[in-house]
Simulated assay, not measured.
Amino acid sequence: MSASFASAQGAAREAAAAQHYPEGALYVVATPIGNLADITLRALHVLQMADTVACEDTRHTQSMLRAYGIDKGAAQLLAVHQHNEAEAAQNVVQRLQLGQRVVYVSDAGTPGVSDPGARLVAAVQAAGLRAVPLPGASSITTALSVAGAVAHSTEHGGFVFAGFLPVKNAERATVIAQQLAPEPRCVVLLEAPHRINELAQALAVLGDRPVTLARELTKQFEEVTTRPARELTAWLDGAPQRSRGEFVVLLHPVAVASDDGASLRVLRLLVQELPLKTAVRLAAEITGASRNVLYDTALAWKRSGASGEDEDEAGDAGS
């Protein structure tokens, strides 16, 4: 056990032991995304009492358990990952039917969101058994909490979780152009270090739309930065370490002009007849609306095909 966690098990028992933990139930447990101190007392207690710990990587999980002073034999660890989840779920169901308490953990964070776990939970519920959530760390909510990217009390509040985009360049570009660019809400993406530069290059088409890159969250070299989409590649290239670690990428909400009875109607008429930048400038002068907001609105129309402008004019607008 790490000396840093020598007292953690005692604290966990004192805080959580009085609660009821039914047998024959699957406990879906969130684990730290980097900093081991981000484990919850309830998670420590349930991991200690588990008959079986199902996990993405048995070696990784065994190392984590030992850091907390939890000793599980090899027979108590069961590999359940993206390649065997459907089959391994039946093994878990059988153990639950025998009255075992089975804990499921992914390699980091909350299972079943982007990591494996959803199929396992579905199989458990289909068998008429209980799945018990133990909340904790999540890279998604961690990044959102410091990005200032979620609008509230507006028509376009909340956020959209898109996860990992397609690996192939053409497919990824299509998703960005057709689904992400027109989306006015905050969009949450995940990306691996060996593909972050390719994603940054693809997102450059979003121009001035603010994007937050959050890397190595909760770890020693944690870094969170927000800058226009067109500047992401330059920032990543600015230092070698910036392309290392797992990334959460947040596309900030698109500023959309409110329809005050004039500005959107004027803008829509102008973009059908003039290049985008000219239409935006004139609409701002005529209505007094913010030029930046009108530009973002017109750009969103163009990308979604909602403005009514033809392809030649769209091309002129981007020149």
Rank of each mutant, 00 (worst) to 15 (best):
F247S: 08
D107E: 12
A317M: 07
A79D: 06
A126P: 10
R291V: 06
D71Q: 13
V249K: 10
A108M: 11
S114C: 10
A192K: 08
A127K: 04
G261I: 09
G157A: 14
A88F: 05
Q90P: 10
P228R: 11
L236F: 01
Q272M: 11
D296M: 10
S258D: 13
S138Y: 05
Q97I: 10
R244W: 05
T225L: 12
A204R: 13
P275N: 05
L274T: 06
L264M: 03
V248P: 02
A151G: 04
Q62T: 13
L264F: 00
V46Y: 00
H60I: 14
A262V: 12
E171G: 11
S307W: 09
A181P: 01
I286T: 14
D310H: 11
F247N: 10
V266E: 12
Q178W: 06
E216P: 06
A12D: 06
V102E: 02
P116T: 09
N169T: 12
D208C: 04
V175K: 14
A108N: 08
G308Y: 03
G238Q: 07
V80Q: 02
I196T: 06
A118Y: 14
T226Y: 02
V113W: 03
A75S: 14
H45S: 03
F221C: 06
R215F: 02
A300M: 13
M64A: 04
K219L: 03
A74M: 09
L274H: 06
T225P: 07
L213I: 09
R303C: 00
A86Q: 15
N169V: 11
L276P: 03
M1N: 07
L250N: 06
K72N: 05
R130L: 11
H20E: 15
T154Y: 01
A181N: 04
S114M: 03
G69V: 10
N35C: 03
R227M: 13
A18N: 12
V29P: 02
G69T: 10
A37R: 15
